[in-house]
C-alpha cells in the first residue's frame, strides 16, 4: 500500500472512501435512526466521539496491547467510550435518547469503528489516527445528514423540525417508516453507481474512425 499524506488521511473518509456510502459499513444506524434529522445528527455526533476516543487510545497503547488479544482489547476500549456516550446522551437530550432506543449502545458493534482500529489506528501514530478518525467520523456524519434530510423533507415536509412547504404538502409518510430507509439508501447508491459509470465512460480510451485511438474520450 502506498504512503498517504496527513491531508489525505483527513479528507478521504469524508467523500472518496466514505464509510457508509462507498464502503457500505455501519448500515444499521444509517437506516434505523435517520427518520428525522435531529436523531441522525445526535447519532452522528455520538459515533464521531466514540471513533475519535477509541482511535486516540488504541494508537497510544498500540505497542502495549498483545497481538493475540487485540480485538478483545479494542472492543473493551470501544465499549467504555460507548458507555460514556450513552450516559451523556441520556443526560443532555433525553427525548432523542429515548427515540434512538438500543442504537446508542449498539455503536459498540458498528463495523466502522472496529474496522478503523484494526486497519489504521493500530499501525499509525496518534496524530495520524486522530486525523483519520476525524475524517471517517465526518464521513459518517455526512451520510447521516444526507439520509436524514432526504427522509425528513419528503416524509414529514420539514427539516430539523421546521416546516418547509406550508399546509398543502401531503407528506409521504412511508419515507420516515422503515421501508423508506431502504428505499432512500437504495436510490442514493443507484445515483452513485450512475455517476461512477459516467466517469468510467469518460476516461475509457475511445476508438475513433481511421484507426486513431485517443487516451481520453472525446466529448461525452
Amino acid at each position: 500500500m502506498r504512503e498517504t499524506t496527513a491531508q489525505e488521511d483527513l479528507l478521504r473518509g469524508i467523500w472518496r472512501e466514505n464509510p457508509v456510502l462507498v464502503q457500505l459499513l455501519g448500515l444499521c444506524p444509517t437506516l434505523a435512526v435517520t427518520g428525522s434529522v435531529d436523531n441522525a445528527v445526535v447519532m452522528g455526533i455520538a459515533t464521531f466521539f466514540v471513533l475519535l476516543g477509541s482511535s486516540v487510545l488504541v494508537s497510544t497503547f498500540k505497542s502495549i496491547i498483545p497481538k493475540e488479544v487485540r480485538i478483545s482489547a479494542y472492543i473493551l476500549i470501544i465499549a467504555t467510550f460507548v458507555t460514556i456516550a450513552d450516559m451523556v446522551t441520556h443526560a443532555l437530550v433525553p427525548d432523542i435518547w429515548k427515540a434512538l432506543g438500543p442504537f446508542v449502545p449498539l455503536i459498540v458493534v458498528n463495523c466502522i469503528i472496529l474496522g478503523r482500529q484494526e486497519a489504521f489506528a493500530s499501525k499509525n501514530t496518534v496524530w495520524r489516527s486522530t486525523l483519520d478518525a476525524v475524517g471517517m467520523g465526518s464521513g459518517f456524519m455526512v451520510a447521516m445528514l444526507i439520509m436524514g434530510s432526504v427522509r425528513e423533507i419528503i416524509g414529514n415536509g420539514s427539516w430539523f423540525g421546521i416546516p418547509l412547504f406550508g399546509g398543502h404538502y401531503q407528506p409521504w409518510i412511508i419515507m420516515i417508516l422503515p421501508p423508506g430507509g431502504f428505499f432512500t439508501l437504495g436510490f442514493v447508491l443507484l445515483a452513485m453507481g450512475w455517476k461512477k459509470g459516467r466517469e468510467a465512460e469518460a476516461v475509457r480510451p475511445r476508438r475513433w474512425p481511421h484507426g486513431v485511438t485517443t487516451e481520453v474520450g472525446g466529448p461525452v
Binding site: 431502504f182 439508501l185 437504495g186 447508491l189 452513485m192
Partner: peptide, 8 residues
C-alpha cells in the same frame, strides 16, 4: 442499490 430497493 438494487438489493436495498428489494429489501425496501
Amino acid at each position: 442499490g438494487l438489493v436495498l430497493i428489494i429489501a425496501g
